[in-house]
Design a protein around this nucleic acid. Structure first.
Lengths: 125, 125
DNA sequence: TCAGTTGTTCGAATCTCCCGAACTACAGGA
DNA sequence: TCCTGTAGTTCGGGAGATTCGAACAACTGA
């Protein structure tokens, strides 16, 4: 097993960040890590909106987030502690992470509204 | 030739925007369109930092930007007028485009500094 | 009508992404 | 110490996306 790679925050290109968060699963994971106070294990995201994510895929997603400078991962016994590097990123690209997460949150709320409307419609027949 | 497709801004997923701008060529094009007052033709970006971009690739990039709701394209005679939809996007995802473009600008300035330092170094031998 | 310009489409090579199978690494018993 | 279970990684192949040259379409002006 190779050691975990964490780039220096100055070496992270903007494109890597946008590419990493330009995937629905990865924004969701990143938002989840940011939302919780304690570091999260990879396995905490094994299910995302009721869909299971294969372990190998999950591992790959965390690697992308890590190498884009978005998260820091530390092995701790059998599992991994993933925490966000949003503080460092904020100094490098001010406002970027916040804007993306606000957008993500807004989109989630929209989806919930749409689904509720669909349920009401199907209930009426 | 198919007609140009422009999604309604409410139908554009965040992921499409991040994916579109998560490519060095495309952010550069988008930044160029935003920076200029008048709509720009595709051909205006046929060279990007002294590198030629093949026409077919360029056409593909504009298609991605267009279908991510980032730009509006109108045929005008033999060429195309591309303008940004940043106003609409601002109402949907406030602060997003601004944050990304600020980050892009900062990164550009960094690159210029690094290149200047390299030139000074090679001049000294 | 013809030449020149701008951009699109097609197809093939290449690259990337996803996921199952097999693996490593560690913890807590028995 | 060995065994079992859990967390995460690596590998390889198939599916899908990207890139780009060649051929094409659409328009302008001579």
């Amino acid at each position: 097993m190779r050691p975990l790679v964490h780039p220096a925050i100055e070496d992270v290109p903007l494109e890597a960040i946008l590419h990493a968060l330009g995937d629905p699963t990865r924004v969701a994971i990143y938002a989840g890590i940011l939302a919780s106070e304690k570091p999260q294990s990879c396995n905490a995201f094994a299910h995302l909106n009721e869909q299971p994510i294969p372990k190998s895929t999950l591992s790959e997603h965390f690697k992308v987030l890590r190498e884009a400078g978005l998260i820091r991962s530390e092995r701790s016994g059998v599992e991994m502690k993933n925490s966000s590097r949003c503080g460092e990123l904020e100094t490098r690209f001010p406002g970027l992470v916040t804007a993306i997460l606000n957008a993500h949150k807004k989109q989630l709320e929209e989806q919930v509204r749409v689904e509720q409307a669909a349920r009401r419609k199907s209930k009426r027949g």
